[in-house]
Design a binder for these strands. Structure first.
Lengths: 346, 346
DNA sequence: AAAGATAATGCAAACCTTTGCATTATCCTT
DNA sequence: AAGGATAATGCAAAGGTTTGCATTATCTTT
């Protein structure tokens, strides 16, 4: 008995042919007798031959692996994007390697070194909230590894980008709040160096200005994290202020939920006393009471398109000179019970 | 200029030594002059030498990759487990490859073929709900790939297993409902071939029997999926019945949430008219109103332990003859607002 | 200084597959 | 039947690294 896997050489020996012949038979090379091909294939089948992936990788200098870097995976937002990516990539010859930066620049840099080491063929990345410098992404590009940025933009970095029009989403949400009669609209925002939260803030500001409502700094707070617990303290402080807001536009659903929680705890009625609008439209958001008004994003599509673009870069030979693509998805306001109704006039 | 990456041979040529010497220098082989080592290392550093991962893989016949198969990733449950796995593996020499079976046996089988093809060193898997036959996992084992099963058991399969005592969790939950005064307790269960939901059902049944409460078949329904929407119809039917239950024990939080939703829609008060208890303790569950009583599971620990056990198998040489480990975590009942209070007598 | 011991390095195979080029076998044509 | 054309297959390198064994260089000892 031979040890280990069946190799092309095993088949060659048994058939008294050269390994190259076996290789050609399995790859359907034209200059080969039909009988030879059939004999080789039959034996390969019989022995359960499986090509050695590592040998192939070494030969082609190609790992057939695509790296995906996300800040975290426990929120629905990123897990849904990843599902979209998976669904596209799993139908290709590539495998994906998911890495978590935990919103840390340092971890992100380490991940990139790791991906460089295993020689991934492409990288999809949504940068950590801490990340301000993008040279590590440029390092990938210098090594001829295409980089696709999704959701969170990297200003100044030349790369394919799949983004969401956070500005428009925020503007729309705040405009709606204003039209529904709110005047004292607060914003629970996120880190300022993150494109998404920065644009949401800008949308908020411009919607106010557009309606000639003066901006009040005490209505704007910047939440440290992105999960429920992170929103509790800022909301509490906001609602303890002497100038009580009549609406809160939160940077995401989790924060909006914790705002709802605190507001109710303080005896406020939603939406009668205060309207609350989130961002993301997580699946459970519609099950809260009242159900959460929010801004929907096409998460699954973001994932799929990012993956498709990466595959496109990998499959076309002239990929390098192709201009970078930048796609911006439109989010959509979903009005539910946590904000006052407002019927758009015909 | 040389093309492509710097190799060990490039360094060797420039220093007029053999590639083997360079290799030994970089690996700190004892039989090498200090000066040689230093010279090699200096040049390697200067040229930015990076060992070729594929060549190493080929040589060692080892991909340094661990496959992880989960049914889905959008629920908090699996994404938290994966985070636990990641946190352990990322500190090792291994990389992980996450694959989604979408609860499909067929996709699971395809994934395993793929993992076999890329020659992963180990596989962590939580089988799809459809999966009844485990031969594909045995195929992995036959190829000397350790398999670690987590959360969902595979009866009859010999492997390392990290499970949760779903039976105890369910029993505890239902026992509590009984003690809090509920008598007509319904169960929204899952697929019967899944160990987790089967054990939860059994815990429910035994808790009733233990309290001498007769089991009523019309109180037991089997939900097709695991997400909010899947629970709507079964709950509606349950609550339309002439024998209205005074409690619902749902197989997970999402289903419990949709049960809460429907119950309230039908005008029932929670927990006055009906108590509702879930399973999983997802982060947002405590933010619902009323907050959801549920059974907490140590998701992160499940992930970490699974990963540790896999690494253990890979690192010990005598791994094969080591007995399989089976660890069963204890879940914990978390009583919140969706069920009637009950103070345990001292 | 020569022999023997030891330290330092080189050679080549191994891991597995593909592929350009060389070679051999087969066939056709005159 | 011989020459040339063509069909079929083999050889060997390449991809990058490690490692057992062989070899060379250096040192020690008498």
């Amino acid at each position: 008995m031979k040890k280990g896997r069946v190799t092309i050489t095993d088949i060659a020996k048994e058939l008294n042919v050269a390994p190259s012949t076996v290789s050609r038979a399995l790859n359907d090379h034209p200059a080969l007798k039909k009988e030879t091909k059939q004999a080789v294939r039959a034996l390969a089948e019989k022995l359960g031959y499986q090509p050695n992936f590592m040998a192939l990788s070494l030969l082609r200098q190609k790992s057939n692996t695509i790296g995906v870097i996300v800040p975290e995976i426990t929120s629905h937002f990123f897990s849904a994007i990843i599902t979209g990516i998976q669904d596209i990539i799993s139908n290709s010859e590539y495998n994906i390697m998911i890495c978590l930066s935990n919103e840390s620049y340092e971890e992100e840099a380490i991940i990139i070194k790791k991906l460089l080491k295993i020689q991934v063929d492409a990288v999809l990345v949504s940068p950590a909230s801490e990340t301000k410098n993008f040279d590590h992404f440029r390092t990938l590009q210098k090594n001829n590894i295409p980089v696709v940025i999704f959701d969170r933009d990297c200003p100044g970095l030349e790369a394919d980008k799949i983004l969401v029009d956070d500005y428009a989403g925020a503007f729309q949400a705040v405009e709606y709040l204003i039209k529904s009669g709110c005047e004292k609209i607060a914003h629970l925002g996120g880190p300022l160096n993150l494109s998404t939260t920065k644009h949401r803030l800008q949308g908020y500001l411009d919607a106010l200005e557009n309606a000639k409502i003066p901006v009040r700094q005490e209505y704007i707070s910047h939440v440290k994290g992105f999960s429920h617990n992170d929103g509790l303290k800022p909301t509490t402080e906001l609602l303890k202020s002497s100038h009580l807001p009549d609406a809160i536009f939160a940077m995401n659903d989790s924060i909006a939920i914790s705002a709802m929680h605190i507001a109710r705890k303080m005896g406020m009625r939603i939406p009668e006393d205060i309207s609350i609008v989130g961002f993301d439209d997580e699946p459970h958001s519609s099950y809260f009471r009242p159900s959460l008004s929010t801004v929907w994003q096409p998460v699954y599509s973001i994932g799929m398109l990012s993956a498709r673009i990466a595959l496109g870069r990998l499959n076309s030979d002239n990929a390098d000179n192709l201009a970078f693509r930048q796609e911006v998805f439109k989010p959509e306001l979903v009005v539910r019970g946590s904000s006052r109704p407002f019927i758009v006039p015909a």
